[in-house]
């Protein structure tokens, strides 16, 4: 037990913070600890959580995928166009969208892994590119989806209380943890992030693993997108743009190093959860959203300063 705590120190601390905040808000606000609010709390974080998982993956490999929000937004537009405008069936629409998302990720990975260009430079460019594609397809306007066709992913509650998107997220977390804790490519991505030169001497193919990393990022942006598109019943080419920097914050907050090789998917998701509970709890206590923003910024800096001090 103690060893487990030692090994997952960061995750334990974050989980404790989450629990303390949970108890605190339960007492502080009458409306907080209700079934509907707790479900709300989780379902609000789904899209950010998916993007953070993707962001964390790119950070594990020693890079950063700034195009993740653009891919997500583009996917909402694609889904909306396929299902809403073109009247396609939902399943083929989703599959085609997923394929396009992964192609975007592979393009990123190709430029970063094979052409060896700095990941932030590449994804800064592809961010504009993918946003642009979304804008062109949507002609710059919001494309709506008929409610009945796309309601499953963000507007349906199983047994009357359990939002489907929470199940989707649970599945997403499971897959991400599986990939980065239990599968060989995930481990190799960590090792590349720790030191690409050492990885090369250990026979790890850097370019192909980077390709996998960025395909993973984009796939997760896609999952974030279907939930988002369903919740707002539409697609828009900049709908997730603001989530990029938020996902970086959440991942860093969750213990993912911007220098690569360090962090965990569990930590990243806990980072999102803590940020989400602060937002939701303060909402319930009628604090302004602005105060929430300040607290998140301050928390980020304090946690970093603290971690930094320990390192020295």
């Amino acid at each position: 037990m103690k060893a487990l705590f030692q090994k997952h120190r960061n995750e334990t601390i974050l989980a404790s913070i989450f629990l303390v905040l949970f108890v605190f808000f339960s007492f502080a606000s009458r409306n907080f600890f209700t079934l509907s609010n707790v479900m709300n709390l989780f379902s609000q974080m789904v899209t950010l959580a998916f993007l953070t998982l993707g962001m964390a993956a790119s950070m594990f490999s020693g890079g950063m995928d700034l195009s993740i929000g653009a891919v997500c937004s583009m996917c909402t537009v694609l889904c909306a166009t396929f299902v809403g405008t073109m009247g396609m069936h939902t399943l083929p629409a989703l599959l085609i969208t997923l394929a396009i998302a992964i192609a975007c990720g592979l393009f990123n990975g190709f430029l970063i892994g094979y052409c060896k260009i700095n990941s932030m430079l590449v994804t800064l460019g592809t961010q504009s590119l993918y946003t642009g594609i979304g804008l062109v397809i949507s002609k710059g306007v919001t494309v709506s989806i008929p409610l009945d066709r796309f309601a499953l992913f963000g507007r349906t509650r199983l047994f009357g209380f359990l939002p489907v998107e929470i199940l989707i997220l649970a599945l997403g977390i499971l897959l991400a943890v599986l990939m980065f804790s239990y599968l060989i490519p995930g481990r190799r991505i960590f090792l590349i992030g720790a030191n690409p030169q050492v990885a090369r001497f250990a026979g790890i193919n850097i370019a192909s693993n980077i390709l996998v990393t960025y395909a993973f990022c984009s796939a997760y942006a896609f999952f974030g997108a279907i939930v988002l598109a369903s919740r707002v019943a539409s697609g828009r080419a900049d709908v997730a743009a603001a989530l990029v920097l938020k996902s970086v914050s959440a991942a860093v907050f969750g213990g993912v190093s911007t220098l690569g090789g360090i962090g965990s998917m569990a930590g990243a998701i806990l980072g999102v959860a803590v940020i989400q509970i602060v937002t939701n709890g303060m909402d319930m206590m009628n604090f302004s959203t602005y105060l929430q923003q300040i607290s998140i910024g301050a928390m980020l800096l304090i946690v970093l300063a603290f971690r930094h001090r320990k390192r020295h």
Binding site: L191, A194, N195, Q197, V198, A199, F201, G261
Partner: peptide, 9 residues
């Protein structure tokens, strides 16, 4: 240091 060890792991 630069070719062998995955430092921090």
């Amino acid at each position: 240091r630069s070719q062998g060890l995955f430092q921090g792991h």
